[in-house]
């Protein structure tokens, strides 16, 4: 443990964040303003997610942090260490063992259980921001449920490209009311937004918290003749052979040769431990040795 308070933040700050989380859960998809604090890591590194995690964690939790689906990316390592040090919580890389998972840009492949909490790091919480830069205006649009601009944008995509040209941070409508930014997850992950676990979203720099309670209706925006499609690279994982997981693409030689592997490192490792081997993989025991 350290000289700082449990989970770093002072109690008054945690209470303020906790109140925002409860209102967020009561109004799914609505962005609740909160007085985000300066954290000892930069804005853009997940300060919103870190503050939400700090307000949510208990000493009994087992905490997992992923960035791009991976537990061993440097910023995931850094955030995991921060809470090991300040909250003394147990940590894990196994999705099934975690009670609280903080994530940047992915939802784990493994379905989350009712007793699990997923905390998202959010850079720009406002789904309308790139269509209307003014916060005063976008807040009005949400108040009036005036989402025409978003449909126009998607429609213009179709007329220009023949397809909706949004591949990540794909907007969703929550419980038939608020249009919400699911954070920059690939649209492949959107169907998983309807889940058994509690989902909390924290945007530190933009001072917003929002939430999706379990079993809440989350619909990706689309058109009847251009239905939403959660796509991924048309490959199997070269390490574990999974056909159903989101893939990272790697450049493996000077000639520009490519290989694909699961972005969710725990999913990949679990499969490899169970004996699955992809086209370019080695059996797990051999790799570990």
């Amino acid at each position: 443990m350290s000289d700082y308070n449990f989970a770093y933040l002072d109690e008054q700050t945690k209470r303020m964040i906790r109140r925002a989380i409860l209102k967020g859960l009561a109004i799914p998809g609505h962005q609740v303003p909160f007085a985000s604090r300066e954290m000892p890591m930069p804005y853009g590194w997940g300060t919103g997610g870190v503050q939400v995690s700090a307000a949510v964690l208990t000493p009994d939790d087992t905490f997992k942090v992923i960035d791009q689906g991976a537990d061993d990316t440097t910023n995931a390592v850094s955030i995991r260490r921060f809470f090991q040090k300040t909250a003394g919580v147990a940590v894990t890389e196994a999705t099934t063992e975690a009670s609280v998972i903080q994530t940047r840009h992915r939802i784990p492949e493994q379905d989350l259980r009712a007793d699990q909490i997923l905390v998202y790091q959010v850079p720009i919480p406002e789904p309308l921001r790139f269509l209307e830069p003014s916060e005063v205006e976008t807040r009005k649009m949400h108040a009036l449920e005036e989402y025409g601009l978003m449909h126009v944008k998607l429609y213009e995509d179709i007329s220009q490209h023949g397809d909706i040209a949004t591949a990540y941070a794909y907007p969703v409508k929550v419980e038939g009311r608020y249009v919400m930014d699911p954070s920059p997850i690939p649209k492949f992950d959107n169907p998983k937004l309807e889940m058994a676990g509690i989902q909390l979203f924290g945007a530190g720099r933009e001072q917003r918290i929002y939430a999706i309670p379990p079993y809440t209706q989350v619909v990706s925006l689309d058109f009847d003749d251009y239905p939403f499609l959660p796509t991924k690279a048309d490959h199997a994982c070269d390490l574990c052979g999974a056909q159903d997981s989101y893939l990272d693409e790697l450049i493996v030689d000077d000639a520009g040769g490519r290989m694909f592997m699961c972005s969710d490192t725990d999913y990949c490792t679990t499969r490899r431990k169970a004996g699955h081997v992809g086209a370019q993989g080695v059996p797990y025991e051999k790799d570990a040795a």
Binding site: Q68, N75, A167, Y168, P184, S263
Partner: peptide, 8 residues
């Protein structure tokens, strides 16, 4: 890292 969104 933005591998995931860039990949999409």
């Amino acid at each position: 890292p933005h591998y995931v969104d860039f990949q999409s």
